[in-house]
């Protein structure tokens, strides 16, 4: 009993509330006879699909610059990688991996610039990051119209110039991870490849934070002066963290796109940031501390919530209420994290 209380104390209040809400929804779902297996398949797919993007929050939070509100910066890099892979006409796993490596390379470049900028505006990273994200998305919207892509699957049918809003990935690397070793248990479909990829990404990041570079990032986030006295260069540590986050975001969008089956351009990257930030916070992270557990728990809770609430709530009212609920939950969560009193001053 004591142990339970102790454990409850450690769990974040909103995490608890949202989990309880989720459990309640499950019961309602059983009651209103919504097919549970298909709900489960759906939520598993969505967890794997969004998880990597949430993972991108870890490095920047741990180094002390807060959640990466400039997620679109990395996403743009990922999109570029994916587009080049499509332009080359690569399909299947080859297309996927080429896209991943290309976008990682592009994101390192963009990340260096972005990290340099954030270093200049120390203390305002969240705000500057948000608007850098908006700006780059608007700028790239122009670029999508101007860049010399020629693959007829990608450009507008009429005029042959400018990329389409959504590009179908069926002929390229759509669902390659999802279909890899896919199996069904009792009506629940498990996209093994997708889950493996997410798990692998988590493991890599976990391992990274146990190397010297990762430890340096941690120390800078916790106590910059301690880090300096341990011989760490805090500016470099922050730069590495931002680049890493940007790269993960780039890879994350490719994973997302292959699972979704479409590549979304123009305004779409903007809608990825806040759910990702909210997810890690729901998992119990704060704007100063985060770990892999927060990523996994947060993604699982948030995505399951979204999947289950749709059929359940649509029994009561129109289905688009889930969209509104997502807005309220995710922004409410971020708001809570921002207004939480910082830990006792050190």
């Amino acid at each position: 009993m004591d142990k339970l209380l102790e454990w409850l104390k450690r769990v974040d209040f909103p995490t608890l509330v949202i989990s309880l809400f989720l459990v309640a929804l499950f019961f309602v779902a059983i009651f209103v006879e919504v097919p549970i297996p298909s709900l489960l398949s759906d939520s598993i797919r969505r967890i794997g699909m969004n998880g990597v993007l949430v993972l991108a929050m870890v490095p920047t939070i741990r180094v002390g610059v807060g959640p990466n509100f400039g997620l679109p910066v990395g996403i743009i890099g990922g999109l570029l990688g994916a587009l080049i892979s499509m332009q080359l006409g690569l399909s299947g796993f080859l297309g996927f991996w080429v896209a991943v490596f290309l976008s990682a390379a592009i994101c390192v470049g963009i990340g260096l610039g972005y990290g340099w900028l954030l270093e200049k505006v120390r203390g305002q990273e969240m705000m500057v990051g948000t608007y850098m994200g908006y700006s780059i998305v608007a700028f790239m919207s122009i670029m999508w119209l101007m860049l010399p892509f020629t693959n007829p699957d990608m450009v507008w049918a009429i005029g042959g110039k400018g990329l389409r809003y959504t590009l179908t990935l069926d002929k390229y690397f759509g669902h390659v991870l999802n279909n890899f070793l896919k199996f069904k248990v009792g009506g629940v479909e498990v996209p093994t490849g997708l889950i493996l990829f997410f798990a692998g990404a988590c493991l890599l990041v976990y391992l990274f934070f146990r190397t010297k570079v990762g430890l340096a990032i941690d120390l800078v986030g916790q106590n910059e002066k301690y880090a300096i006295s341990s011989g760490v260069n805090p500016k470099r540590a922050r730069l590495v963290a931002v680049v890493l986050s940007t790269v993960i975001a780039g890879v994350g969008i490719i994973v997302y796109a292959q699972s979704y089956g479409f590549l979304q351009l123009y305004q779409a990257p903007l809608f990825m940031t806040f759910p990702a930030v909210a997810s890690i916070l729901i998992g119990g992270a704060s704007i100063r501390r985060a770990n892999i557990r927060n990523v996994v728990i947060g993604t699982v809770i948030f995505q399951t919530l979204l999947t289950i609430s749709l059929p359940v709530l649509s029994q009561v009212t129109r289905g688009d209420v889930t969209e509104v609920m997502r807005l309220i939950v995710s922004n409410g969560m971020i708001l809570y994290a921002l207004t939480r009193a910082p830990r006792e001053a050190g």
């Binding site: 900028l117 120390r122 305002q124 705000m127 850098m132 700006s135 998305v137 608007a138 919207s141």
Partner: peptide, 20 residues
Amino acid sequence: EFLAYAVIAFALAMHGWRTK
């Protein structure tokens, strides 16, 4: 649209740079 966002980003960057 880009200008609207960019001008805000720029102003914020200037703000951050000055506070620092």
